[in-house]
Nucleic acid binder design. Structure first.
Length: 258
DNA sequence: ATGGCGACGCTCCGTCGA
């Protein structure tokens, strides 16, 4: 069972890369963030043609999330207790698999910069709500994968230059503490269950030759409930996509569950 | 040493992202 997440930075701009990824990597479930279009504008037919079911929670211009799945899914749009949010940042699916139900969320957590503004307060409020919801999911004792662009650098080893990012909303102590609060509930960060290595990144800015200089950060994560973590076999960052033509500034990260 | 991008839209600049 292969589950991937990818911030595509506009699904319409990335359609060629997305369909190539579905063909070559063929994840069973792919969570997308920053689709940047309304549901009606999502290139649904091109994806369905490749054998995927498509569920979107889009909006015009900004944000927008989706879940693609080889098997049929039932979805809920919006983060529970945060449904009034006009920003489309959360969609959750129950996926039928041959090993029973699997729950997968596609999350686009707010960036939060600049930290002294209401944007950071919004990020923290979203995280509080996500923590509460994640706790309620644990009570179901199901395999759950909370996947997405968390806009959180968990630790110094996850950023090329920790000092340069010290005051950034992605790396502030309060941000990292909230992320740790989430994992402390009982979720396993998939990548960190497989390696302690530093310098594993999922995002490189388009500016200042960040990719060429490997000035990256690790902000896209897969969080696993105990029932999912027990089945974890491997984690892969599809870094090669950043070197290809017209890339997203994020690359996919995926895990294999037995 | 500095700055260097890219997507979007009531589009040719201003805003946003990370």
């Amino acid at each position: 069972m292969r589950i991937a997440t990818w911030n595509v930075n506009s699904v319409r701009q990335r359609l060629e890369q997305l369909t190539a990824y579905l063909r070559e990597v063929a994840p069973d479930v792919l969570c997308l963030q920053e689709i940047k279009c309304e549901d009606a504008a999502f290139p649904r037919l091109e994806i369905e043609e490749l054998g995927y079911n498509v569920e979107t929670h889009g909006q015009k211009t900004f944000n927008g999330v989706a879940i693609l799945s080889k098997t049929p899914i039932e979805v809920v749009r919006g983060l529970p207790k945060f449904e009034h949010d006009p920003q489309a940042r959360y969609i959750e699916a129950v996926v039928s698999t041959d090993r029973g139900a699997l729950r997968v969320a596609s999350i686009y957590l707010p960036n939060g910069n600049p930290p002294e503004t209401e944007k950071y307060a919004y990020k923290l409020a979203f995280m509080d709500c996500l923590i509460a919801h994640a706790a309620s999911l644990l009570a179901l004792e199901e395999p759950v994968v909370l996947a997405g662009d968390y806009n959180v650098i968990p630790a110094a080893r996850d950023v090329h230059d920790p000092a340069a990012w010290a005051g950034d909303a992605l790396f502030l102590p309060q941000t990292r503490a909230k992320f740790q609060e989430l994992t402390n509930l009982g979720y396993t960060e998939a990548l960190r269950a497989t390696t302690d290595a530093a310098g594993l990144y999922t995002f490189w800015d388009y500016q200042a030759g960040a990719w060429q200089r490997n000035k990256g950060i690790r902000i896209d994560h897969l969080l696993l409930s105990p029932q999912a973590a027990d089945r974890l076999q491997s984690v892969t960052i599809d870094k090669n996509l950043r070197a290809g033509a017209k890339p997203s500034d994020h690359v996919p990260i995926r895990c294999e569950l037995e």
